[in-house]
Structure formats: structure tokens, C-alpha cells
Amino acid sequence: MKKILLACSAGMSTSILVKKMLDEAFEQDIEVEIKATSVSEAKLIGDNWDIVLIGPQVAYELDGLKSALTKPVFTIDQTLYAKADGQKVLEFAMSNI
């Protein structure tokens, strides 16, 4: 099972995207664990996940997260984030794990 961690300021706005991604994973029969959290918590637990995706509103944290973690870290595309496009974000995450 793959594990995808989404992070934003407090983990609130990414929780909507997590729900959409989980719905898409269910429809595609993909076994995945997805969680929303804050950037500060992601720095502490991110290495326990296969990939960390951060919201575009905290893109300034990208370099700090990449320095703190050994796992892949990416900023979620702004348009996909705004649309809460669970399918495309899930595809992106799975292709970068």
C-alpha cells in the first residue's frame, strides 16, 4: 500500500483534496493511504510516507521540506488544487513514488 501525505498551513484545505483522492482511489481499486496535515507536522513525519505533496499556498516551504526529508516532495499544481482534482493529483503522486 502506498502512502501519500498532503500538507498545507494547518491541514484543513488539503483535507478536501484528500477526500476526492480517496474517492478516486476507491473507484480505481488502488490501495493507498492518504492523510492531510500541517507543514510543520510533515517535517516530522514525512519520511514515514512514500511522497509528500504540499499545497501551492505553502510552496515557499518546498526547499525546507526537501532538506528535512528523504522522500520525494512536490508542490501540488495550483489549478489542480483549486479544482480539487483528486484524479489528477492521485495520478501525479502515484507516478512520482
Rank of each mutant, 00 (worst) to 15 (best):
I34T: 14
S67I: 03
Q28D: 03
K88I: 05
A25E: 06
K43I: 06
K19D: 10
E27I: 08
F74L: 02
K83A: 11
L22E: 14
G55H: 07
M94L: 13
S13E: 03
E31P: 15
Y60S: 07
T37C: 04
A25M: 08
E91S: 15
S13R: 12
A59R: 11
A25T: 12
Q87D: 12
V52R: 09
A93S: 13
D29C: 04
P72R: 12
A82C: 03
L53Q: 06
L62M: 08
T79C: 06
G55E: 00
L80M: 10
S38V: 07
Q78F: 10
V52I: 07
I34Y: 14
F26T: 12
D63C: 02
K35L: 10
Q28T: 13
A59T: 06
A84G: 01
Y60P: 00
G11N: 12
I34E: 09
T14N: 12
S95T: 15
A84H: 01
G64F: 11
A84Q: 02
T37Y: 05
A93I: 09
A84L: 01
T37F: 04
K71A: 05
M94E: 10
V39R: 07
F74V: 01
D29W: 03
M12I: 15
K20D: 01
G55V: 02
I16M: 07
E91I: 02
D23P: 11
D47G: 13
E33W: 14
L62N: 02
A68C: 01
L44R: 13
G64Q: 15
L22Y: 07
Q57A: 06
I51C: 01
K71S: 03
P56G: 06
V39A: 13
E31W: 08
V18M: 13
L22H: 07
A36C: 04
K20Y: 05
K19F: 07
A68I: 03
Y60G: 04
N96T: 06
I54M: 09
K19R: 14
I76Y: 00
Q57N: 13
E27V: 01
L80K: 15
D47K: 14
I16A: 06
V89Q: 01
L65C: 13
